[in-house]
Amino acid sequence: MKVELTVNGKQITADVEDRMLLAGFLRDVADLTATNIGCETTSCGACTVLLDGESVKSCTVLAAQADGRSVTTLEGLAGPDGEMHPVQKAFHEEHGLQCGYCTPGMVMAIASLLKENPSPTEADIRAGLEGNLCRCTGYHNIVRAALAAASEGAK
């Protein structure tokens, strides 16, 4: 079937299989491979992107369901001048990533979490990230990064 999505501000039209997932669309059709697949069963959050501004796991959404809607991936998060988003910056400064595989999903999930709750507590962040797995960092610095980005946003 034919779908039309706006991805990181760019319109993409394609003929896709009905069962194609949004994650697959982003990686294989839009050629944006920052969005990673860690499970395809909605357990790990590696595939998290923003759909019309809200975070979703792109392995749980069909490309068809995203037809006519707008998607932001990690590649589209920095400002037009290339300046990193506060969450990206905080991940760098707080060593919030190691292998980087969970990172795109984590960054998108936290960007969305902070939009909903601009001054979260550590407990809010930990609860909010329950659906995003990281095997490298023990979450410690990811939580630090989220707190740092929140206080940066509050300035």
């Binding site: 920052a34 969005t35 590649e75 595989y101």
Partner: peptide, 15 residues
């Protein structure tokens, strides 16, 4: 802070 990060944070890694 890591030199590896900017690429991983803006474009994603190449796995």
């Amino acid at each position: 802070i890591r030199t590896e990060d900017p690429r991983l944070l803006t474009a994603g890694g190449v796995y």
